[in-house]
């Protein structure tokens, strides 16, 4: 190798390893900082739902619950909408509609989280309170999920704002995936006498399934860690309740709420341990989804 090439090679190598090193350092620091809480409470920390800074009783279960519930609502609502958007823009809409509309959907991803939060607080939450929650309570009120006080803010509100926030992610990745389906497959389906919808089902959706799973995972990943908008809409009360109308707290929102004002070192360490748990949950869910995709690709 020439010496200038060599220099370049080592520079890139250093940078690449540097990023890995940075990640490792972060994990180590988080581990080290949460050690006090983890040592104090042990694994009970993750299955205990109490969070009391006066009595210094800390457990993360309520936040884990809040994160999982809001992310689940978000994915449940966002997936059908995102797929509909992606299919419409890619397969049905004429280009002069698809291009500007696609641009707007992408722009949803560029809106800062805090703006979503404000909009959620002043528009979405009152709308949910006045129109959606009464309907849900009337028709689905026999389910434990739709009982209790109708305040707008809460698990449902946070889930809905998350859904809106992850739609651009899932929709744009799905569009990429659909675009990669060869035209010849669409023609094969049409040639067999498939209607447009049947063609989408057998030649596009089915083929793109594992890729769409990837898009959903990315959306889920974003929902799990999303902080600002959720903090503004979730009501900030750590509790494990069936009702989606109730307030809650997620792992990300408790950090945003309390990190600045944690006064005891145990409190601070407990918060860091929540951060660690968030990291681990993201890792587990992403690995699980990757495993699903890997299995699916083996079958295809």
């Amino acid at each position: 190798m020439r010496s200038s090439d060599k220099l370049f090679y080592y520079l890139l190598k250093t940078l690449a390893w540097g990023v890995v090193g940075l990640l490792a350092a972060m994990v180590l620091v988080v581990l080290w900082m949460s050690w006090e809480a983890l040592g104090h409470f042990g694994l009970r920390f993750f299955v205990d739902a109490s969070w009391d800074s006066w009595r210094e009783e800390f457990g993360a279960l309520a936040f884990i619950y809040g994160t999982l519930v809001t992310s689940f609502i978000a994915v449940l609502l966002a997936v059908p909408v995102s797929l509909a958007v992606a299919l419409y823009l890619n397969e049905l809409a004429p280009p002069w509609i698809a291009r500007p509309l696609g641009f707007f959907v992408e722009m949803l991803a560029a809106i800062p989280s805090i703006v979503y939060g404000l909009w959620g607080l002043f528009v979405l939450a009152p709308f949910l309170r006045d129109h959606v929650q009464p309907l849900l309570a009337t028709y689905l009120g026999f389910l434990p999920f739709f009982q209790g006080p109708q305040m707008g803010v809460g698990l449902l509100g946070a889930g809905v704002i998350l859904a809106i926030m992850i739609i651009p992610t899932i929709a744009s990745i799905s569009r990429e995936v659909f675009k990669s389906v060869p035209e010849s497959l669409r023609e094969a389906a049409l040639g067999l006498g498939a209607t447009r919808w049947e063609m989408l089902r057998i030649a596009v959706l089915r083929v793109a399934l594992s890729g769409v799973m990837g898009a959903v995972v990315l959306g889920l990943g974003r929902a799990l860690g999303e902080t600002m908008a959720v903090t503004m809409l979730i009501g900030n009360r750590p509790q494990i309740v069936w009702s989606l109308f109730e307030s809650g707290q997620t792992m990300a929102s408790i950090l945003a709420n309390q990190y600045a004002e944690a006064d005891s070192s145990l409190h601070l360490s407990a918060l860091t341990a929540v951060g660690l748990a968030l990291f681990v949950v993201s890792l587990v869910i992403n690995s699980l989804a990757r495993w699903i995709i890997w299995r699916m690709q083996r079958v295809v």
Binding site: P182, A188, A189, G191, L192
Partner: peptide, 16 residues
């Protein structure tokens, strides 16, 4: 198209 079968120039079985 239901009444007309078609075999294309390039094989195009459905993946999946």
């Amino acid at each position: 198209r239901r009444g007309v079968g078609m075999v294309f120039q390039k094989p195009n079985p459905f993946p999946g």
